[in-house]
């Protein structure tokens, strides 16, 4: 059996403009980031689908003490996509001093960022970003 959508395939598709997810044939739930089993019911009968790339902020923080090699301050959010699954990413084009609880439920569009990797990152760093929309 093949892995339905590997990390590398997910990243490569996103770099070409397509945010992919997996739709479950059994329960219709949509899963992303990809895994071998449906996030809801565990079935492995999954079909690739393209997601609209829009969602809503569920929570956030401003990182002010960062791990190497990151440079604080920056915002990390969890957003719930319109299709159901959630992603963690950096909210960009918003000042860390500007964000507050009112940003929870704000609409965002999903993007990505690539930065160089190091000895402990298993290759280049691909990360999700969010922009208000």
């Amino acid at each position: 059996m093949n892995y339905p959508l590997t990390y590398q395939q997910f990243v490569d598709h996103f770099k070409r403009g397509k945010l992919l997810g997996l739709k479950c044939n059994s329960c219709q739930a949509i899963t992303t980031p990809p895994r071998i089993s449906c996030g809801q019911c565990g079935s492995s009968t999954l079909d690739l689908m393209e997601l609209c790339g829009k969602g809503q902020i569920e929570s956030y923080t401003v990182i002010r003490a960062a791990p190497e090699p990151f440079h604080p301050p920056y915002i990390v959010c969890i957003a719930k996509l319109l299709e159901g699954p959630r992603l963690m990413g950096n909210l960009i084009k918003v000042s860390p001093e500007e964000i507050d609880l009112n940003f929870i439920t704000r609409n965002v569009r999903v993007g990505y960022k690539v930065s160089p990797g190091d000895n402990l990152s298993g290759g280049e760093r691909f990360s999700i970003t969010f922009e208000l929309c």
Partner: peptide, 12 residues
Amino acid sequence: SDSRYEASTGIT
């Protein structure tokens, strides 16, 4: 955190 989909955001 998930090294593929979370740690790359600089989450702590």
